[in-house]
Amino acid sequence: MSARTVKLHEIANARSGDKGNRLNIALVCRDPAHYSAIARQVTAEAAGAAFAHRKPSRVVRYDLPKLAAFNFVLDDVLEGGVNASLGLDGHGKSLSFLLLDLPVEIES
């Protein structure tokens, strides 16, 4: 078995949701066998770093092993949220793909 590095996008799915200025990203393993590799590498810190330019005040990762999924919650990254943001995507709907851009090493 050798290890290779892939983008998270190759092995996992993600969907963003918003409430005010808070973003959640559900991350779902396409193959549950990748759960532990993702758990080890895609930490709350790693997610926070991917969003550094949006200055999250808090990042929490909730683990859902029975669903082979994780829920990331990032506070204050939506530049005010849908009612206040100057950006085109005040909901942060596109931001799930920022997380999916992270590298992850898997056995192949």
């Binding site: 799915n13 969907r15 959640n24």
Partner: peptide
């Protein structure tokens, strides 16, 4: 599963 966790914060 994607919809199950949509707009969820603390899943507990």
């Amino acid at each position: 599963t994607e919809q199950l966790l949509y707009e969820i914060h603390d899943p507990a």
